[in-house]
Amino acid sequence: MLGEVIKLIKRSDLIVEVLDAREPSLTRSKKIEDISIKNGKKILLILNKGDLVPLWVLKAWKDYFKEEENIESVYMSATSHLGTKLLRDTMKSILKGDKGIVVFVGYPKSGKSSIINALKGKHSAQTSAHPLEYGYTKSLQLFKIDKKIYAWDTPGVIPPDGDELEKIIRGSNVDLLEDPVKPALILINRIIEFSKESLIHVYKVDFSNPYELLEKIAIKRGWFYKSTKEPNIDMAAKAIIRDYHEGKIAYYTLPPSLYRDD
């Protein structure tokens, strides 16, 4: 899968990496960015799911990327159709009015497909299929974003990598987890680090530790193991991970520049 993404990068002029606005640092792929830079490609970052984060935090991340790394970024919410015009205008600006092909890359659940669908809208038009080089059997479609800008009509999905927390945040399929409880507890601890209230708001229960939260969710929803009649925390763990991916849990992290003692 990663090899397919790299092939798309090499055939494109602008690499648009879709991040989760709640966790911009953990949803970046430095590997993909390094490959893009080595191939002389321009990079644009999208802070998607921006409706889950305060505006001042989005602006802080945008300033951080520009001032610390000289990378352009935009914030938007694809599902709410907010920021689509800004994204289109920014891509035009980066390409400086030249013709160009864009590829959207990002981890699963980042919202790439929603962004592509939002950009398509009434402004886009499908073009002919363009097969990739020898050894790649699938054909891909380009669609028109602007008079001079085209994009691949397929998400460049980066396989979830990293440690256990990163894999969950980067969109690992919850149904493929042998033990969903452990990563769910790690995710809950991560959210508590920034906003325990967000979990209380979503699940309407108070709790003293992550395990208790899973138990209370299971009890509230009537989920119990048939054999022991104990709260089914496996189902509760999967529910929390799914809710996170679906944008039901709102919280935010800050750019490193705001943590430094200047």
Rank of each mutant, 00 (worst) to 15 (best):
P155W: 03
K144N: 13
L258M: 12
D243I: 04
D206A: 08
R170C: 01
G247L: 05
V16I: 01
L87D: 03
S25L: 15
T154D: 03
L58T: 07
L177D: 04
P54V: 06
V102H: 06
I145K: 00
L95N: 08
P210W: 01
V157W: 05
E215T: 11
L177P: 04
E33K: 11
N173A: 08
Y134A: 01
P183W: 03
D163I: 01
Y150K: 12
G83V: 08
S12A: 07
A125L: 14
E230L: 15
N39E: 15
G106K: 00
D175S: 08
D261I: 15
D98Y: 03
K30M: 14
N39A: 15
K38R: 12
G111L: 05
G83Q: 08
T154Q: 06
K99V: 00
W223V: 06
E33P: 00
G111P: 11
H130K: 13
D234Y: 13
R242Y: 14
D98T: 03
L14G: 07
A236W: 07
G100D: 03
K147G: 11
G106T: 02
L132R: 11
K10G: 11
L214Y: 13
G171W: 10
D262V: 14
R22I: 04
I219E: 14
M1H: 12
S77T: 03
P180F: 02
I186A: 09
F224G: 08
S77R: 06
I101T: 15
P231Q: 04
F143M: 03
E69H: 15
E246N: 13
W223I: 03
I94M: 11
V157Q: 02
D89I: 02
L58M: 10
S113T: 13
V53H: 05
N189G: 15
L132S: 10
